[in-house]
Design a protein around this nucleic acid. Structure first.
Lengths: 113, 113
DNA sequence: TGCCTCGGTATCATTCGGTAACCACTGTGA
DNA sequence: TCACAGTGGTTACCGAATGATACCGAGGCA
């Protein structure tokens, strides 16, 4: 199966721990750096910066800087980014629905030793 | 948004670089360790072991050992695992469709410096 | 004069993933 | 008899990715 390596290449983008959460947060329109940081609980400043850079590089979102003080930088999904969000939505829903299930399975596994 | 941390918890499972590929490979029925290793190009033996353990722990797949020699160990999706595969399918399709687009965006970004 | 916000860097510690070697056991071939 | 391969791992080690924390400049506000 040749697709494996190509899928791998894209999962490197999408599976990098924070990318999908950023994409999801941007679904209703652009947000500023600090808004994203507040919305995505637990992300460090550095990782948000890195994630946003990577997503911009891959054409998933755009970065818009207004030259004012204090700085005003906003991030918005591109059309490609919006298709990604749609493709990722079922997985994100699944994660919310199945978390209790998974935690139970994990606890059972751990208690078995 | 409280869901973020819960989504995060599941993306830890799903986003760990190889998990979705393993789940995808198992869609047509159980496979043995070595079959998976051959099918998923580039995965190391250790990472396949680790990934399979984690997915078993989370109730995504089952591990079945037949006590024969040579060892015969097969892995199969649980019902939860099958729902995960369905939820992940759109994202995997997206990745195949959009890889050229992303590579182009990346090249353009890099050439801009 | 401090102190805050915003959007980041710089620096360091910790964790993750990959490589290579090794294991037990059996079957196969010379 | 001896070597070697396949199977499903485990272990030690190392570099890369990630995370926590501190700091920055410019302006606003007290």
């Amino acid at each position: 199966m040749q697709d494996v390596c190509r899928t791998r290449a894209v999962l490197d983008i999408v599976g990098d721990k924070w990318a999908l959460l950023v994409v999801r947060m941007l679904k209703d329109g652009p947000l500023r750096f600090t808004e994203l940081k507040r919305a995505i609980d637990g992300i460090s400043q550095r990782m948000l910066t890195v994630t946003l850079r990577d997503l911009e590089r891959d054409g998933i979102l755009t970065r818009t800087v207004r030259n004012v003080m204090p700085p005003h930088v906003s991030y918005e999904l591109t059309p490609t980014g919006r298709t990604l969000r749609e493709a990722a939505a079922p997985l994100l829903e699944w994660s919310l629905e199945n978390l209790p299930h998974i935690e139970a399975a994990r606890a059972a596994y751990d208690s078995r030793g």
